[in-house]
Write a protein that binds this DNA or RNA. Structure first.
Lengths: 111, 111
DNA sequence: GGGGTTGGTAAGTAGTAACTTACGGTAAGT
DNA sequence: ACTTACCGTAAGTTACTACTTACCAACCCC
């Protein structure tokens, strides 16, 4: 439930190109808001709003440093996303293997 | 480049709740379009449009069966998504460890 | 071949989301 | 204390997207 919500938020957050760009830069190394705004073709408030979405999705965290706010990656959020995708991946493969097996049986029974 | 495009499409595809629901049902077992439309609170054309997005993202494939079209999961697309996320995860962890190490050195040099 | 399924596409609409400018609020330097 | 730097939020606009109904094409059964 909550995992589903968090996952949906994560996917939604990473769906937007600008936000994914911000996320990747933050993941590479911590960044202040102004730094990101200088490197990107959007205004600083836009970056701020994107960071809020990423933060709500649990993908990044903010650390105050004077008047600046240093945003860094939140490994927990990324780990959760990865774990869910892994589980989903395994479940899908099982279903796939099962379907293939049934298909083989059908073919053996009706060649 | 192309991987980036595909990844963006995959994230965008899975960002929508209805589309993720469709994707999960298709991943569990192959479905026809009408089947999905019956189980979901949206019309059949809506399901068709969602399936087109998922198909363009390389997440599902369609197999004609008479007048019906059976949609099944595309393991390659899911594998690509998983691999990219894994790579991204490892890169991020490395950057994180590096930053932590530098932070430790700083603290040791300036206790 | 006609009637009945099954699905993809076109056109139109309502809701949402990404962006902008403008403003307020907090911390550091002089 | 006053200014300066940095950031988040509010309000408004534009673009996109998810959905609907209507229509058309392809395939199976009689």
């Amino acid at each position: 439930m909550t995992d589903q919500m968090a996952l949906a938020q994560a996917f939604t957050a990473l769906a937007d190109p600008t936000r994914r760009e911000i996320f990747e830069r933050v993941a590479a190394r911590p960044h202040a808001v102004g730094e990101l705004a200088e490197e990107l073709p959007v205004s600083r408030p836009a970056v701020s709003q994107h960071l809020k979405v990423l933060s709500d999705a649990g993908l990044v965290t903010a650390r105050p440093d004077g008047t600046r706010r240093i945003y860094a990656l939140d490994p927990q959020g990324l780990a959760g996303l990865r774990d869910y995708l892994d589980g989903f991946w395994q479940r899908s493969l099982r279903a796939f293997a099962r379907a293939a097996e049934e298909h083989t049986h059908t073919r053996q029974e009706n060649p």
